[in-house]
Design a protein around this nucleic acid. Structure first.
Lengths: 246, 246
DNA sequence: CGCACAATTGAAAGTTATCAAACGTTGTGG
DNA sequence: CCACAACGTTTGATAACTTTCAATTGTGCG
C-alpha cells in the first residue's frame, strides 16, 4: 500500500549502435530464430541495437507502442502500477527474450533495465509490414506469445493459490529452468533484481521474501554466497516445496 | 488447502452436430471473424459443432491438445490445479471466446462448462494446415493471443496486489465490460459461476467472496435479485473501489 | 415436500503485512 | 586506503486481513 517514486532516465536519450543481426548469437527464443538468411537480412534492416545502463526506463505503461525490443544482454523487469503506487512485476527478461509482445496501441506495462543491458530495437510499423511478407516470422511470434501466455497462467496459479514459501521456491526454480544448459540443471543462479522486485513479482513484501530466503538457507536448501548470486544446494527439496508436497 | 473431487462426464462422448460457419453469428472476437467467404468455407470444413450440458469437462490439463474450440453459446471455466487440489481459475469464456490458444503439445489447463453450452470444434492439426495457407487467420490468432496476454497481466496485478474488495469489484467490472453493448455500459450481469468459482478466480475463499458481495450490497453498489444475476447500481463507486481510489 | 447443495454468517486462528530498528554492502570522497 | 553516507537487506514485534472451522440459512430439484 505504499507509494513509490523512482527517478530513472529514459531510453529515448540513447543513440542506437549499428550491429547486424548476422553477428547476433542470442538464444533460440529470440525473434530472429528460425529465419532464413534472406529473412534475417530484412529483419536486420528494420532494427538497431542500443546499450543502456542500470535503472533505465525502456518503455512506459500507456505510452504509444512504437517500438519492440529483443534483449541481447543484461536483464529487464516488467511491471504494472496501481494508482496508489502498488506494483506488480509481470516478468523478468533475459538475453533472447522479447519485449513488447503484449500490446495494442499502447504498452500494457513498463520496462526497466536491472543492470547494464543491450537491446535490439524494432520499429513496430516496419515490423508489421514485414509480417505481411514473412509468414515464418508471424508464426514465430505466435509461438512466442503462446508460450508467454502459458507462463502467465502458471504465474496466476502462483499468485492466487501458493503460500509465501511455495512462491519463493517456484521463483527460484523458474530461474534455474530458464538458465538450464545442456549440461544438466543449473544450481548457480544470478539474481540481478532486488528483494523488493522479487516481492512485487510474487505478490509479497520485501520482508517476507527476505525471511523466506533466510528459512531456506537455514534448511540448507539454498546458499547465498553473495548478493546477486544464489546456489541451490537441495534441488529435489526445492521442487517439492514449490508445489506444496510437504 | 482443501482437496476436491468432482465427477463430470467428458466431451469425448458427445456426437458433433453439423452446422456451417456461415450461419454462425457470434461476436467479433471469434476466430472466424475477419475472414473472407472463401476462407470461412475452408474453416467450416475442418470444424464441427457440439452441444454439452452443464458441468461437462471439455479438456483436461496435460491431455494432448488435439482440438481447439470456439464457444458459441453458454459459458466455460478454465482452471489449473495444484497436487493437493488447490485450484486457480485462469478465465471464464463466453460466446465468441476461443478455447485452446495457450498450449504446446498438451493443454495447459482444464475446461468445464458452467451451463448448457455450444462449442465449435477444430482439429488442431487441420487448423495448423490451414494456417499455412491463410495468413489472415494466423494474424487473427496472433491478435487474439496478444489480447489474452494483456488480460492475463491485468489478472496478475489483481491477484498479487489487490485487496479482496478491489478484487471482487474488478471482477464485476470486467464482466460488465465484456458484455457491454453499443447502448452504453451494462449494469445487469449474468453470473453463471458459483461463489467458489469466483473465489478460485480471484485468489479468495468462497466465504470471503460472499462477505464482500454482502458488503457491496449494504453499500448499495450492487444488487443480487436472484442468484446467477447481478445488477450494478453505482457504477462509478464500483470503478473507484476496483482500483483502491477510496 | 423434503433432500442436497450452495450461500451466508459468526468466531477464532494463522499467515503475511506493517512499522521500526539494526545490520551489511556499495560506492564515493577525503 | 579508509571513513562515511546512502541504500538495500535482515530481523523483531505488532497488527490486520483473510482463512479456517462451524453452524445456519437459503435455493433448486426430484
Amino acid at each position: 500500500m505504499r507509494s513509490r517514486s523512482q527517478v530513472a532516465s529514459t531510453v529515448a536519450s540513447h543513440a542506437p549502435v549499428n550491429s547486424p543481426c548476422e553477428k547476433c548469437n542470442i538464444s533460440a527464443m529470440s525473434l530472429c530464430h528460425a529465419l532464413s538468411c534472406d529473412d534475417l537480412q530484412q529483419l536486420s534492416e528494420i532494427s538497431s541495437s542500443l546499450e543502456i545502463s542500470k535503472g533505465v526506463t525502456i518503455i512506459n505503461e500507456q505510452d504509444p507502442a512504437n517500438y519492440l525490443f529483443n534483449v541481447t544482454a543484461g536483464s529487464v523487469k516488467l511491471y504494472k502500477l496501481l494508482p496508489d503506487g502498488r506494483r506488480q512485476m509481470t516478468g523478468f527478461l533475459f538475453p533472447g527474450d522479447f519485449l513488447g509482445i503484449a500490446m495494442n496501441d499502447c504498452y500494457a506495462y513498463s520496462a526497466e533495465s536491472l543492470e547494464d543491458t543491450k537491446l535490439c530495437r524494432f520499429s513496430r510499423a516496419k515490423l508489421e509490414e514485414l509480417l505481411k511478407i514473412l509468414p515464418h516470422l508471424e508464426n514465430r511470434l505466435l509461438n512466442m506469445v503462446s508460450n508467454e501466455l502459458v507462463l502467465a497462467q502458471d504465474q496466476m496459479l502462483l499468485l492466487g493459490r501458493k503460500t509465501a514459501k511455495e512462491k519463493v521456491c517456484s521463483f527460484l526454480l523458474s530461474l534455474s529452468k530458464r538458465a538450464k544448459s545442456e549440461t544438466g540443471p543449473v544450481t548457480k543462479i544470478s539474481l540481478p533484481m532486488g528483494r523488493s522486485d522479487i516481492g512485487d513479482y510474487l505478490g509479497l513484501t520485501t520482508e517476507t521474501v527476505s525471511r523466506t530466503l533466510t528459512n531456506l538457507k537455514k534448511m540448507n536448501i539454498i546458499a547465498i554466497p553473495t548478493n546477486g548470486m544464489l546456489e541451490i544446494t537441495n534441488l529435489q527439496e526445492l521442487i517439492d516445496l514449490a508445489e506444496g508436497l510437504d
